[in-house]
Amino acid sequence: MSWITKTFTSSIGRKIIMSLTGLFLCTFLVVHLIGNLQLFKHDQGAAFNTYSHFMGTNPVIRTIEWGLVLGFGFHIFEAWALTRRNKAARTQGYAQWHAEKNSEWTSRNMGILGTIILIFLLVHLYNFFWRARFGGLPKVGGANPEVRDLDNLYLAVVDSFHVWWYVLLYVLAQISLGYHLWHGFRSGFQTLGLNHRKYTPLIKYVGYAFAVVVSAGFASMPLYFFLFTNPQGEIAANAPSLLHTIASAF
């Protein structure tokens, strides 16, 4: 083995890959969340369909997409490799074990939380990404020449978010993601050695805020469409205006 492979198969090296990919995925979440806010524009999906057309066809985005595939791939692979190593490090367990007295639940259950995220991810990718890219969604149609030839992903979103178990899966997955980030955000910095008495408390609270905003933001989408739109994607009069206000800022 060369020094490079030795470095990145060592326990610390694997964790460094874990944290770099994890923090990279955090930046992806920001972009994905802001982009999806177009769903709240109250325009029958015009802005959202334009945005998703851009994301699906722009060569720069399509290239970055491969980075995302690698990011997820390495993150998941290292999660598996580290979990295996950590299990082997204690084959005989304790009769009594009170880790809840010395640590947070989320930090001890990153693997379970990650697995829920992974299951969600596969369903999510099939449902939206796969159908948008390869599935031949119906066109928007209608009179507006700017959007009528675009794939109507908005309506696919509306359809999915009227299925109760789908909404449930989304919300559960976002709660898991929230907990994953609750620990993961600050943990990623610590793994990279970025710990300083001046900044670590800040990183911790930014991480908590990030976890809450991101998971609540994503969870709001299925809930909003389930509760406040009809199957044609028309917004009910009593829908809360906050999300629309936020979306209009972008």
Binding site: S11, R14, R90, N102, S107, M110, Q190, L194, N195
Partner: peptide
């Protein structure tokens, strides 16, 4: 030995209070 998941049980149980800053 296993890898570090930054859980913090170690520092909480350490009799002399070695801090997690050392792991960073």
């Amino acid at each position: 030995f296993g890898a570090c998941s930054n859980i913090g049980s170690c520092a909480a149980e350490c009799p002399v209070g070695i801090s997690l800053e050392n792991i960073a």
